[in-house]
Design a binder for these strands. Structure first.
Lengths: 149, 149
DNA sequence: TCTACTTGCTTCGGATTCGAAGCGTGCTGT
DNA sequence: ACAGCACGCTTCGAATCCGAAGCAAGTAGA
């Protein structure tokens, strides 16, 4: 619980310094950059980044303000919003990505052997399958956030 | 980046439902419960939980309001604040801990073999050492948080 | 068509977080 | 003793996040 937070913090810092992006914003842009045509629905972004829907709305607002993405209604489903990576957005990803990869490599991958990576991948895959098999989605409305004090 | 967040989310939910605690608050209480006499300085808590100092102050305020901890000046250093776990705090940890352990076991440890755990421990230890050896603490004051919009 | 339910997104309110700045306290060198 | 710096904590302002509630669009059944 300390390795992950130091890595997280370092990555955050690099992204902030090198492109004024939060990690979440970077994830969004990266996902778009991977997607066909650089287009995704809001929901797909949210599912990918584990965010709440409202969180994606918030971040998309920020990214749109900066001209890194655009939002437009989907032609086939009037409810959906299609998020599109702009040229500026693509350029920013290209600018930040190498340094990001480098940071992660230096902090996480460098001390590992190929054997470790294989094992890690294996293990994480098993955990993922296990979670998918029995998703603990219950969200009982007990004991809300604010105490009534 | 999905395994960890689902685990995190599930753990959060359990702690909230079972003791109205955030994960961070649980970490603080657990750390105190491990400490000798149930006493720690604010700084030691912050270092353990990776928090900023101000974050610990905030959470300690909440926990103190609920009577789970107390804060008192350190006898040997007038600057320090000693956080002490109250009986109520200790009781709450005892109430929440079994379920917490159970959640983590079911989600994370169950699908793993003993061999995996050994490897994971090994690998994480190596990463940790690597990070400690070359701590990337720089915090350049470039590109602050708020854009001047 | 009308109703009820589902889906996709946004708005709103509140909680949590961080960093910078501030304030005492402790330490060191002169 | 005094100046200067380091340390420990809190306060403050702003950013980021989530869940509940709301709204619009789609879907299924009578």
């Amino acid at each position: 619980m300390e390795v992950s937070s130091l890595l997280q913090h370092t990555v955050d810092e690099h992204l902030r310094a090198d492109g004024d992006l939060s990690y979440v914003q970077f994830q969004i842009l990266a996902r778009l950059s991977d997607a066909k045509d650089g287009k995704l629905r809001m929901t797909d972004l949210a599912d990918g980044v584990v965010y709440s829907r409202s969180g994606i709305t918030y971040q998309a607002g920020l990214l749109e303000k900066r001209g890194l993405i655009t939002r437009s209604p989907a032609p086939d489903d009037e409810r959906s919003v299609i998020v599109t990576l702009t040229d500026a957005g693509r350029a920013l990803v290209a600018q930040v990505l190498p340094g990001h990869v480098d940071v992660v490599r230096r902090l996480l991958f460098e001390p590992l052997q190929q054997r470790d990576l294989t094992t890690l991948n294996d293990v994480l895959g098993r955990v993922r399958d296990h979670m998918r098999a029995a998703p603990p989605r219950s969200a009982k409305p007990r004991a809300r956030r604010g105490r009534t004090g």
